[in-house]
Design a protein around this nucleic acid. Structure first.
Length: 585
RNA sequence: UGCCUCGUGGUGUAACGGUAGCACAAGUGACUCUGAAUCACUUUGUCAAGGUUCGAAUCCUUGCGAGGCAGCCA
């Protein structure tokens, strides 16, 4: 069973624990560094839970940092969504570990052991702050680039992108590799000054053109891009590459454990090389890699999610069918459920595929405990209780949450005309059908046992109404309520019911691995969204937000498009349905 | 092809040279005024072959398989 209260264990936490115990890093500092080029998804939530979890467990902090070194792809819309999603996900759990910088702050120059240094710390918890940005360090990163050139460890290269590529594959050094330091320094300054067009020159690390690790074959550190940056505007026309900017950002912020996904494993020697080559005075960060989250029936790459959004396959990044944090939130999933899920999948270096059933289980477990129960009918079928007068009206008592006694009870209206679920009536019942059938009996939850006396159909043969009689002795809680019938069904009193649009979601893809056959959009599930006009019990009139379990159906949450005159609900997830499995047999 | 990493039931993960455990999924039963929840039980596993050892999922060798990298993306 998922138990988010117990402390998880994994190989990264083992390392952190050892570093704390040995005094190497008494206070660990992590960071969550998304690129603001899309919305965060559930894979990011695994990383957020890891990084903030470590900070929380070891008394450290976790900086939220925008890894924004590519102006072409990034946007403030994404920055704002990332902040909102991270705050939501860690709320009530690791808020106090969120590392923000003081508004407007940039790294301060200092001297450590006689050496020049830069450092930018985070504000105290609760103080006003903003996320860190790699782009806030462009000045310092550039200074480090100059330093590398001075040390003879980097040079300006005039090769074209294509030539750079070919030389690297051939393990051949660029003819500009050994140009004089002074010349590189001059060229770098002029690159910064805007003298050269995009792609004409780069700054390259001078490492080893014959290394078996491609990332050590003189990787590009800076490229020329005459482009507006969402944070620095038009200040720069050269931008540092990920490898250069990321490791230095880690160092500037005093990060101790820089945790990323497996594909960066081959970058680690470069990460370490940059740190060592600069002869930095403070404790150095180390990079550790874990396997990213893969879920079946889901695509996870931001590029593909962006396609779904841009091509209108979904209504937006927060479409409740999207595996984005904002989509899951809108669907009605809680941060607690997402955290429990992250805990359950664990942290390893094995690149496997997690069954979405594990996610669904975490969502159900969480909602089962917290969601109050209500009665609602998704596909209404009219029922008339013929032995009750038209004006009959009574209030029944219903339990709000059998899993939580403190949730109390509520009043449920009952009368002559009701709605029941179409699926709960069968004219020709299949084997083991416990629900209503002609001449059969069923209990209406919290009310009476009723017997189906007559089936009324329209001209086309469609069942439009059931006429039933109630056993007035069988009222729930009454002296003679003990009579057993095989089935109990939910219902809604017609006169006091509330109309609502209910959106029923199913998985977005029909294939376990949507990418297996090339085009992931070819296996989009045409039935991933079904909208029904439902009837809800009267207590739900006027609700503006909230989550409930509709008994025997699933968990539902008010959608953000809901309005006073038009209630809209999303089905977060259905209840487990063993009858559906039985019916298939 | 080169380099890096990883192989434990159907899936995800524990076991740190000493009884292969947990969760999900699946199945059976109990209970049930939610065919839910809960409870009990069951099925299924160390990639292969050698070696070291009293003892190997764990250490070594080889093989096989999977993933990643080889952008002036991150």
């Amino acid at each position: 069973m998922s138990d988010a209260a117990s402390t998880p264990t994994d190989f990264i936490r083992d390392i952190v624990a050892a570093d704390v115990a040995s005094g190497k890093h008494p206070v660990p500092k992590t960071r969550f560094p998304p690129e603001p080029n899309g919305y965060l998804h559930i894979g990011h939530s695994k990383s957020i839970c890891l990084n903030f979890g470590i900070a929380k467990e070891f008394g450290g902090t976790c900086n939220l940092r925008m890894d924004d070194t590519n102006p072409a792809k990034e946007d403030v819309e994404y920055v704002e969504s990332i902040i909102a999603d991270v705050k939501w996900l860690i709320s009530g759990w690791a808020d106090h570990c969120l590392g923000f910088k003081a508004p407007g702050a940039t790294p301060g120059a200092q001297r450590v052991e006689g050496k020049p240094d830069f450092f930018l710390g985070s504000v105290a918890p609760g103080e006003e702050g903003r996320p860190f940005h790699a782009s806030d360090y462009f000045v310092q990163i550039y200074a480090y680039a100059v330093e590398l050139v001075r040390r003879g460890k980097a040079y300006v290269d005039d090769l074209t992108p294509e030539e750079t590529d070919r030389y690297r594959q051939e393990g051949r050094p660029s003819p500009y590799r050994d140009r004089p330091i002074a010349e590189s320094l001059d060229l770098l300054e002029r690159m910064r000054g805007g003298e050269f067009p995009d792609g004409t020159r780069t700054l390259r690390a001078k490492i080893d053109m014959t290394s078996p690790n491609m990332w050590l074959r003189d990787p590009v550190l800076y490229r020329i891009r005459h482009a507006e940056h969402h944070n620095t505007g038009g200040q720069w026309c050269i931008y540092p590459m990920y490898d250069f900017a990321h490791v230095l950002s880690d160092y500037l912020e005093g990060i101790t454990h820089s945790i990323c996904t497996l594909e960066f494993e081959v970058h680690r020697p470069l990460y370490d090389w940059i740190l060592e080559s600069l002869d930095l005075p403070r404790a150095l960060p180390h990079q550790y890699e874990f396997a990213r989250l893969n879920l079946n029936y889901t695509v996870m790459s931001k590029r593909k999610l962006l396609q779904l959004v841009n091509e209108g396959k979904v209504s937006g990044w927060d479409d409740p069918r999207m595996p984005t944090i904002s989509g899951l939130r809108r669907r009605g999933v809680t941060p607690e459920a997402l955290r429990a899920f992250a805990y359950n999948v664990g942290i390893t270096k094995y690149d496997g595929v997690t069954d979405v059933a594990v996610l669904e289980h975490a969502i159900r477990t969480d909602l089962n405990k917290r969601a109050e129960r209500r009665l609602a009918v998704l596909r209404p079928l009219k029922v008339v209780i013929t032995n009750l007068p038209a004006e009959h009206r009574e209030d029944l008592e219903a339990v709000n949450n059998p899993e939580d006694e403190t949730a109390g009870t509520r009043k449920l209206a009952f009368g002559r005309e009701l709605f029941i679920e179409r699926d709960d009536f069968a004219e020709v019942p299949p084997p083991k059908f416990f629900r209503l059938k002609p001449g059969g009996e069923v209990r209406l939850k919290y009310a009476y046992i009723v017997k189906c006396e007559e089936v009324i159909k329209d001209a086309s043969g469609q069942v439009v109404e059931l006429r039933c009689t109630a056993d007035l002795e069988s009222k729930t809680g009454g002296a003679n309520s003990n009579r057993k019938v095989k089935g109990t069904i939910h219902w809604v009193h017609a006169g006091s019911s509330v109309d609502a649009e209910v959106r029923l979601y199913d998985r977005l893809f029909t294939e376990e691995d949507p990418e297996a056959k090339g085009d992931f959009k070819a296996c989009l599930n045409p039935h991933s969204l079904e909208t029904v006009q439902a009837k809800l019990e009267g207590s739900l009139a006027g609700v503006k937000e909230g989550r409930w379990q509709f008994e025997r159906l699933g968990y539902f949450a008010v959608d953000r498009e809901s309005a006073p005159d038009r209630l809209v609900l999303n089905r977060t997830i259905s209840l487990k349905d063993t009858w559906a499995k039985e019916a298939k047999k």
